[in-house]
Write a protein that binds this DNA or RNA. Sequence first.
DNA 1: ATGCAGCTGCGCACAGTGTGCGCAAGACCT
DNA 2: AGGTCTTGCGCACACTGTGCGCAGCTGCAT
Lengths: 240, 240
Amino acid sequence: MAAEKTKQLPSVWARQQREPDQPALSRASIVREAIVMLDADGIEALSMRKLGARLNAGATSLYRHVATKDELMELAVDEIVAEIAVPPAGGPDWRAAATEAAASFRATALRHPWLSSVLGQAGLAYLGPNLMSFSERLAALFTAAGFPEPGRAIDTLLSYVIGMSTTEAAWLTTVARSGETEADFIARLMPAAQQAAAEHDHLAESYASPPADPVEIRDSKFAYGLEVVLDGLALRLAQA
Amino acid sequence: MAAEKTKQLPSVWARQQREPDQPALSRASIVREAIVMLDADGIEALSMRKLGARLNAGATSLYRHVATKDELMELAVDEIVAEIAVPPAGGPDWRAAATEAAASFRATALRHPWLSSVLGQAGLAYLGPNLMSFSERLAALFTAAGFPEPGRAIDTLLSYVIGMSTTEAAWLTTVARSGETEADFIARLMPAAQQAAAEHDHLAESYASPPADPVEIRDSKFAYGLEVVLDGLALRLAQA
DNA sequence: ATGCAGCTGCGCACAGTGTGCGCAAGACCT
DNA sequence: AGGTCTTGCGCACACTGTGCGCAGCTGCAT
């Protein structure tokens, strides 16, 4: 038993060579695997122990490459931000470009729903390289479009996109935790919602409509709000 | 020592009457005290044990009134939502009313920065009574203003407000954790930020401007984006 | 007056969490 | 050949949420 624990057998044959192309443990591999776990089981399922086990390592071994779990999350967020596509600046249609960037942000946030949880706690004060270049590309886009205060326009657009995506991601997480399909979950929630809304005229009416395809509803809701924001921004641009 | 633990002395005189006006433990008092702790020390400082201790009760006693910690958070959120003021519907100026509601939401979110963390994880699927009446009042406001699709207008506005408030709250939480004033924290962060932005032309320029009053900056940033969204909504209203 | 049922609070215990510390073993440079 | 540096790991600590069963109080039925 003690021999098992020390794992150090006297025979050389028992000791296997380490694979050189398998970098064992590295910051990159840790972050990559953390993202896999986060995507699969959500934010509260990620623990250093489980992550270590997934990497054939002890929990505390990870701390050689990552100062703290919070730092790990920062790295994971920055890694994900790289997935957001921002069209190059200088194109003829800034609105189309902004729409594309917004859609890419939303798609990324929905692909990794835990991202919103982290943003809610830590915001965008991360300074990671991918986040910086994301911001830079947005700044280039809006500057080229002629906005006198591109920073404000970006903050406005991003606030909308973050708010809507966060709400959606939280909803999808709740649905996923229930183990049901979205339609089933809605159907099960409906009576409670209608009862809670019974005292409120406008809400009751809005709950009265028959259920439609939830995915389509969310898509068109996002598109509607995005158009509203872009209309407002276009007004600012025209005034400049 | 054993006598201390059982706390049950044989003498009647030692046993003090329970104050009847002190309801000992109740769902309301638990939620109230939880909010106090959340406001004071943030979301990660709230534990059932500490909360119980604050109420002169054991940790597990709370579970008689609250099913789980998550449920406690739901109750706390709904309690806070009651603080958001929405002007009555039917006034002459829907924009002013919407602005007021948005400002009240933001002020509430900044007064209780942990709220954003919870929203990021659970969204608005709560169905609490205060949240329902909040939604109802918004619906009344936008319906009275004449919006053909008040739900979409509300979702758009709320997404912007949530996104901006969440970002702000997260930033303020980070600042608060540092123990410095916001200005000091910014000053300390500046070199790192400038270095990270060095490779990016537009960002470097935006970081080059001298530091201004951060509170004023945030206020005007919020107001700018709000006007943008309301302009976009006004356009929809005019087209109807 | 007596007994019984239900409610409240609590201590114990379990299975987990993040992470500091010190040790062993290998890698690499001198 | 020796010394320094890096990497992984086991142990331990202080803490978390919460299920379980027990003790005492309250109020109602007999």
